[in-house]
Design a binder for these strands. Structure first.
Lengths: 236, 236
DNA sequence: ACGATTGTTGAATGATTGATCAACTCAAGT
DNA sequence: ACTTGAGTTGATCAATCATTCAACAATCGT
């Protein structure tokens, strides 16, 4: 049994096992993925796996830790490279998950979100890394929202808004996967976008710029163009 | 094998099996629940179960159909008895799921939401009833939103807003279960409430009542009182 | 009263599950 | 050259998995 705390292990085998297990857990879920399946896909014999991981649960924890350690590199840094505008980044992030949904034919959503509902009760040890993943996710969004400064209302709790972003994403992904269509995701995100416009509007009023308009035009100024049907509400 | 389409079966055994399976699938998930566990908990021998259900998957479909058939009785009718105000009903609904979270110590969220992410890909036949469950859920909320009439902006797509309600609920439940605390749920729902106030504000402007205030007071008029810390933003 | 249908029993099935371990390889250290 | 120990192998394990089925009991319509 190798030292579990040695995250920087140079073992290529361990990495391959984690990589394969990550993909399979994401595709089929934890319970539905047998150890034998991981072994076959990774081209490794059982002894090797049990050399690095105490058991299947330890493998799951390893996968979750891996997700956590790669969250910035794989999710947030790509988004941040796309645009420097902090509020725009939120929508690019939501669009990233949207594209993942479509590209995988609605078979894969948030890799951790799936596991969260499946194992957070049956495997108590898994709840902590999952919670830390969500906390880390919202912390990054939170930072963006803070960076938006007075473009958002002064007394708006940025952290709560970040929690809403995650909720909309996970809830939208869930519906889209069940529906096998992007419409529910777009609907939820579209409404969220209007919420953001609402916030920006109010902040503009606070800064003394806008004339406190309830007018649709100023609220939809930039990101939310009219839909093809002429509706003022953009569904995506 | 009994006729599967006979939903009105008077068999007490079949009902007990479904009732127990529903609880176990909700608590532990589908994959983690063995048929033997269902049999033991229901006090039934395997032959009886396989007399009514072709197999474990058919049992799952039965459970999902049961959820669907009891959605109004167990969820929406209780909410509708609580208040006649259509918009208030939305928040009572969200509070219902909140209380379920707290009462079960964050071990149980939306019974279908869990299954949605777990089996909607691995068991294709299950996706349809799950999708219909979500569709039915949002349809009820949609009706309330329609009933709100001009209290919401005229061009606001009620259906999209209903999708957002479901997304916020499911996403909030997911986070609360992982966190084993209600805070993430309250944060997400709190932000959603502000979105609703925003909508009502704009509708009031459309009706020519308010003076298009961006003012906090009118937006938080009724449901969203100040929190104990004096913040203008209610977290729940 | 009768056969037919429906419901129930529980031991047994074969497949698969996660996990074990003694034996083996091989590069690094001395 | 010899030792050491991490890494790997694959046969093997008991347990559990979903499922079957022949036999029996209860209830039904006629």
């Amino acid at each position: 049994m190798v030292d579990q705390s040695n995250r920087g292990s140079t073992s290529a085998t361990r990495d391959r096992i984690l990589e394969i297990a990550e993909r399979l857990f994401h595709e089929r879920g934890y319970g539905a993925t047998g150890v034998a399946t991981v072994l076959r896909a990774a081209g490794v014999r059982s002894g090797s796996l049990y050399h690095f991981f105490r058991g299947k649960e330890a493998l799951l924890l390893g996968v979750l830790e891996r997700h956590l350690s790669q969250l910035r590199i794989r999710v947030f840094e790509p988004v941040e490279r796309t645009t420097a505008d902090p509020l725009e980044r939120v929508f690019v992030l939501l669009d990233l998950y949207r594209r993942n949904l479509e590209m995988t034919g609605f078979t894969r959503g948030c890799p951790v979100g799936n596991l969260a509902l499946e194992v957070s009760d049956t495997i108590p040890a898994a709840r902590d890394p999952i919670d830390r993943y969500f906390a880390s996710w919202t912390r990054e969004v939170h930072r963006w929202l803070e960076a938006a400064g007075d473009r958002l209302p002064g007394d708006l709790p940025r952290e709560a808004l970040a929690r809403l972003v995650l909720a909309v994403m996970e809830g939208g992904v869930m519906q889209a996967r069940a529906h096998h269509g992007i419409e529910p995701y777009d609907a939820a995100v579209g409404q969220f976008k209007y919420h953001m416009s609402c916030m920006e509007d109010r902040a503009r009023f606070e800064r003394g710029e806008g004339q406190a308009s309830g007018s649709r035009e100023s609220r939809q100024r930039d990101r939310s163009g009219r839909g093809p049907n002429g509706s003022a509400w953009r569904t995506w």
